[in-house]
Design a protein around this nucleic acid. Structure first.
Lengths: 264, 264
DNA sequence: GTAATAGTGTCTGTGAGACATTATGGC
DNA sequence: GCCATAATGTCTCACAGACACTATTAC
């Protein structure tokens, strides 16, 4: 910090202000964008075109620009890494990762990453952007370090980030209505139940699920239309606008196949 | 990014790597450290000695150093800003704040702040560190922009950060056992209940509270000692080691005096 | 027809909330 | 004796979980 001069105004201070000469720092936005495809949870990954970790699969990421908030950077990461206006229905900050050395570039620039959690209805296959050799939605169950038996190795500490994102996602389904953001405008309760079942790795009783979801004020609102399914035709619903589910719908004691989270 | 040269190894890449010449960036750790004093929630604030926002009350904060994780920075912020080894019993990352312009220094260095939530038993009055004119625990109810009718104006966007911290704290009491981190090694259930009542701004039924807390496996463990109180002497307990409270203890529909949070 | 699913109904156990009761210590 | 609080007990209601049962559609 500069030496304080009594009586100096804030304007004078800022005009004279010289930031300390540290090794350069950079702030990164990384996005874990999930979607559901055939009742299975998929995650958007890119194959890195350049170093470090060239050729490995990684979360889309971008460096924060000087006049941009980190959330704007996260949205741009999706756009730039996939040459596709992937506009997630839900995007929230997850956590900031700053362990020294987690990015090999730390020897030249210290890279701090602000990870984000996002999800949306399946937009189909994305096109790779400038930094990516390829871009694709990959089953979460295939990721090494995330799911027991997964084989796809991930760059940086992205396996940790994805595990944290999955735990946050599973927890948010309990006490919020964000599950609807995985689905198109209109959906059946069986489709909504599929979100819960895929994320939690359990099966839920259809009857009890319907009773719970329709009983929470504003979670779902029925529309005057039905959809043919394998069995009886199903009532269609929209998201009713409520953000919170009270009381929460707690996930059953875990029997899922994914690596046990540190939580519960 | 550098232009990719096929066949280049990661070592060669890193040796030649030149970070882009952006305006300088800095990453900040800020800490909202709460404690309970006379059944009232207090927050550690410093009075800023230098610009910007000189003389205003602010959260203790420190710039991240090149070889330090952000959590280490947060702990150092407490040590440096208060000349006191304030070792919080609980410290966790809250959220990263990055809106351009939230710090006036953004015109020279872009400052991104990683806010933290911490709490501990009342350590008494702290001494101010080098950047602080004074340091003190201040009642949360006196803070403008946090509590309706509060008068203490806060620097930067710290009122927002503190509100977010309070909401996180209130939520964590519901489904974790962290409330014990506000208390010394041994405590009575009335003291533990006091944490919940102060944070939630409600009163709780003592009988039901005891039944719930002692019923959660590993929340509290009784020690063979009692403490004299105003009435009958009370059994002493320790934290039993459990991290999670399942099922959660939901806070009653809010009647608290604090400004309505955006949540629930 | 059969199989599969939507949607409703019923029973039961758990647990939260409200409240009463008793025990124990300070004054 | 009187008051405050600890600690336990009781009753009721809400709700989750288990498991019917029926209606409707695809094949």
């Amino acid at each position: 910090m500069t030496i304080e001069i009594d009586g100096e105004t804030e304007e004078e201070f800022l005009a004279a202000y010289e930031p300390r000469k540290y090794p350069p720092m950079a702030v990164n936005a990384e996005v874990a964008l999930f979607t559901l495809r055939d009742q299975e949870l998929f995650l958007l990954l890119i194959e890195r075109r350049g170093h470090p970790h060239r050729g490995r699969y990684a979360l889309p990421s971008w460096f924060m620009q000087p006049h941009e908030s980190i959330e704007a950077t996260a949205r741009r990461a999706l756009a730039e890494e996939t040459s596709l206006a992937l506009d997630p229905r839900h995007l929230e900050q997850l956590k900031t990762y700053s362990t020294p050395g987690r990015d090999p570039r730390d020897c030249k620039v210290r890279v701090t990453s602000v990870a984000h959690l996002a999800f949306m209805p399946d937009p189909g296959e994305p096109e790779p952007g400038t930094h990516a050799r390829s871009a694709a939605f990959v089953p979460v169950d295939d990721l090494a370090g995330v799911t027991e038996g997964g084989t796809i190795e991930l760059a940086f500490d992205h396996a940790t980030i994805i595990s944290d994102a999955l735990e946050r996602l599973a927890a948010k389904l309990e006490y919020t209505t964000v599950a609807a953001a995985f689905l198109p405008e209109q959906f059946t309760l069986a489709e909504l139940r599929g979100i819960y079942e895929s994320v939690w790795g359990t099966s839920l009783d259809p009857g009890n699920f319907t009773r719970k979801v329709t009983g929470v004020d504003g979670f779902v609102a029925s529309v005057p239309a039905r959809r043919k399914t394998g069995g009886r035709s199903a009532q269609l619903f929209t998201h009713g606008g409520a953000q919170w589910m009270l009381p929460p719908m707690l996930r059953p004691a875990s029997t899922g196949s994914r690596r046990a989270a540190t939580k519960r």
